[in-house]
């Protein structure tokens, strides 16, 4: 019994992926199906924050702006320029990564709240530009008629699942690699990292770039899923929600990030019976989770995965 448990623990990503892969087979009502898709799409941006915040210790409250950049890049290319959706799907994250690299530059000098305020400001700048650049973005009326990468919804689901799985594996490998260690060293002690040969600026830039690439990818999937974009989907509150999902998932655990994204995305829907008050309850739950995160951490899922992650470290490190 214990052995089975251990096997599940060590292959948790595969287990999650396989369980999710069953969803289109068993047939879920289309709205719930959409929510799960959105949860997976959110998982990508949350993993991007795991890399940035969980590994590197850089807190961003501007990720909604990056999500918007990816989403609008995809949408505008497809709608206004008739670009092949697959090509747009490739360009969107790359362009977002370039924008996000700019976000990394203030991190050379600024830490703590100083950096967070900068990321909020950059996120807001993106939103205001989208709101006012009507010719390109549709402004407050939004951008409609965005074609999906794949029209078949089941295939689309599997595409997202494969992307999430690949990103999860890649991120786990990144975590235990030289780069991941440099990120964690920056988080814990920048001076020690620098003195041991880590080019702190370069690695911060790398963390922001990787994170933004993933945020842009998440945005392109978002645009593809909804078919409609509106600046209201990319506010400070959205950035905050992504951050809260990251904390709930244990900050540096990839499986934790996936599960918390799915759970938090579904939460407003689960609370739907409460109608108007559901968003209040939802944010109250988040407040309480943060307040008791320390107590929760002795039992919570994320700890389970963090332990597992440490084991992974050892496996790559060679073990005993």
């Amino acid at each position: 019994m214990g052995k089975i448990f251990d096997t599940i623990k060590n292959n948790i990503l595969i287990v999650i992926a396989l369980l999710l892969a069953l969803i289109p087979v068993i047939g879920v009502p289309s709205y719930q199906f959409y929510i799960i898709e959105r949860g997976l799409q959110n998982a990508i941006i949350v993993i991007s924050l795991v890399i940035l915040l969980g590994y590197t210790g850089q807190l961003s409250l501007g990720h909604a702006g990056l999500l918007a950049t990816g989403a609008y890049t995809y949408g505008i290319l497809v709608v206004s320029y008739n670009v092949n959706p697959w090509i747009a799907f490739l360009i969107a994250p790359i362009f977002t990564a370039l924008i996000g690299a700019l976000l990394g530059i203030p991190s050379f000098k600024l830490t703590g709240p100083f950096l967070v305020v900068t990321t909020i400001a950059l996120g807001e700048i993106v939103r205001i530009l989208i709101l006012n650049w009507e010719k390109l973005t549709g402004g407050p009326y939004g951008l409609t008629g965005i074609t999906s990468i794949i029209s078949n919804s089941k295939l689309m689901f599997y595409l997202i699942l494969i992307i999430v799985y690949f990103i999860s594996v890649a991120t786990s490998r990144l975590s235990v690699s030289k780069i991941g260690l440099a990120f964690k060293a920056i988080k814990e002690d920048e001076v020690a990292a620098e003195v041991m040969g880590v080019d702190v600026k370069r690695y911060k830039l790398l963390a922001f770039t990787i994170s933004s690439f993933l945020a842009g990818l998440s945005g392109a999937i978002f645009a593809s899923l909804t078919g409609y974009l509106n600046p209201d989907s990319f506010t400070f509150a959205d950035s905050a929600t992504f951050l809260l999902m990251t904390v709930l998932g244990g900050m540096s655990s990839v499986p934790g990030a996936i599960l918390s994204s799915l759970a938090v995305t579904a939460l407003p829907e689960i609370l739907r019976f409460m109608a108007r008050s559901r968003m209040v309850i939802y944010s109250l739950v988040l407040l309480l989770i943060i307040r008791y995160s320390k107590q929760l951490s002795s039992v919570k899922i994320s700890k389970f995965f963090l332990k597992k992650k440490n084991k992974e470290d050892l496996v790559v490190g060679g073990g005993e």
């Binding site: 409250l61 400070f236 905050a240 809260l244 904390v247 944010s283 988040l286 407040l287």
Partner: peptide, 16 residues
């Protein structure tokens, strides 16, 4: 950082 995120959650809560 977690306490800081707590103020962010509070912000979302008040808004709702």
């Amino acid at each position: 950082q977690i306490i800081l995120i707590g103020t962010v959650a509070l912000s979302v809560f008040i808004r709702n």
